[in-house]
Design a protein around this nucleic acid. Structure first.
Lengths: 246, 246
DNA sequence: TGCATGGTTTCACAGAGTGAAACGCGATTT
DNA sequence: AAATCGCGTTTCACTCTGTGAAACCATGCA
């Protein structure tokens, strides 16, 4: 048994908050059984969260939603200011040039998180919100993030219990090495049917991998040929963005 | 004495989180005395927050920063998907047309929160992050949000203990009425020296005020004359954005 | 070497948080 | 209308959990 130097009540409250990854609105009873707490306990915790503005109750439905305290905090997130504004400019330029949705991903544990995005202007387009969290197994950005990661990170992901049985580790590792050589990765309908993407790594000045820049769209528009043409453009944008970082 | 139906430990943990409004990085001791907790208590709470990904420790400085759980949550914020994507499109159009920074504000209690923004492309420009929180006393957006608010909201703000003594309530209320007639508000160096703004209300389909749309920039570029010219453009954009909402 | 200044761990105690149960209330059903 | 359900809210006795003083480690600095 592990020693526990954490606070149970707080853990529970945060668990409640994290439920809002999976849905916008929750009723008390719903929430309480999802996190396995007694109604009355959940009620007390929610009252506290509400007090501090982390959740609000929808006037109409009486259900709980996330509050604006979170927005305020996310403004001060790890990413330096410039990352959200300066890099955003570059991303918009790239979007205007290619016409597809542009995303920025960082690795967080054995997952990747979309920390910034600009949407395609076309009618048919991928939509994924900033903050979305995805596995590191599939997708162009995943492969980029792994191809340049430290060996121990790669190992951790390969040994993740969630690793899909259908995916051959050997072949995957070989693919990563090719990607490391080529400087970019592509994916076609790996994670999401009908979608494709090209991604390139962003290194900071000291040469450490900090993020992956991705262009994504419908796979009938982003054909292998088109993606091969886009790759240098994406890599160049990623390089320029890298020089903007500390 | 009030009855308390909240959980102390959770309150404290959230207070710690809220410190990150005022700074990106905090050491343990720093934090603990800011929230008035014993070092050891703060330590335990932070360990819990870290466990759930709400804070992380900067590798280099050993200090605490916000974690990515927050980003993930803020993606699921109250605002429906469309608000962050569809409206964003309109905001970009407006930015491209006027060349200035465009912001979207909602009221939260007696303050306003910037929930979305697109930055000016010009070299000299205002920068304010999404999530920023400002008083409802000053600024074009504040006046718009108050001019169309329910009377009790207006009262609450006028009686807020933080109301600046230098600001005449009578004159302010009169100004609000004019704004309600005109359909837009302007401000020149009210909140921030050297800055000016034009703002218009966004109503949803059922006619309820939901947000304020603002164009802001340096006051030598946004002169009264220029702003008068921009006003109809902003109002028109706000109207169109309103029709996009439920 | 001593002295700050940060973070970490220990431990005995008190009171804070817990959850079963009872309650209230509105919408549905009988 | 009475009965029944599905919600959220409140109460209360008990116990387990969170607390904070103090001791303990690492550092960097004089």
């Amino acid at each position: 048994m592990e020693e526990k130097r954490t606070v149970r009540a707080v853990e529970r409250a945060l668990d409640i908050l994290l439920c809002f990854r999976h849905g916008r609105e929750w009723g008390l009873t719903e929430l309480s059984q999802r996190v396995g707490l007694h109604k009355s306990t959940a009620h007390r915790l929610l009252a506290t969260l509400e007090d501090k503005g982390f959740v609000v109750r929808d006037e109409a439905t009486e259900k709980y939603r996330l509050g604006l305290s979170l927005l305020e905090l996310s403004a001060n997130l790890t990413l330096p200011d410039d990352l959200s504004t300066v890099l955003l400019g570059e991303m918009e330029k790239l979007r205007d040039r290619l016409g597809e949705t542009i995303s920025l991903y960082v690795r967080d544990g054995n997952e990747r998180v979309r920390i910034q995005a600009v949407q395609s202007t076309q009618a048919i387009r991928r939509v994924a919100p900033v903050g979305a969290r995805m596995p590191l197994f599939v997708g162009a950005s995943s492969k980029v993030l792994l191809a340049y990661a430290e060996p121990e990170v790669r190992e951790a992901v390969l040994n993740d219990p969630a690793w899909p049985a259908s995916l051959d580790r050997e072949a995957f590792v070989r693919q990563l090495e090719e990607i490391a050589k080529a400087g970019y990765a592509t994916s076609i309908e790996e994670r999401e049917p009908g979608a494709a993407a090209v991604a390139a790594p962003i290194f900071n000045r000291s040469g450490r991998l900090v993020a992956a820049l991705a262009v994504s769209g419908p796979s009938n528009r982003l054909t292998p040929g088109v993606m091969r043409k886009y790759a240098p453009v994406v890599m160049e944008a990623a390089r320029r963005m890298g020089t903007m970082l500390g």
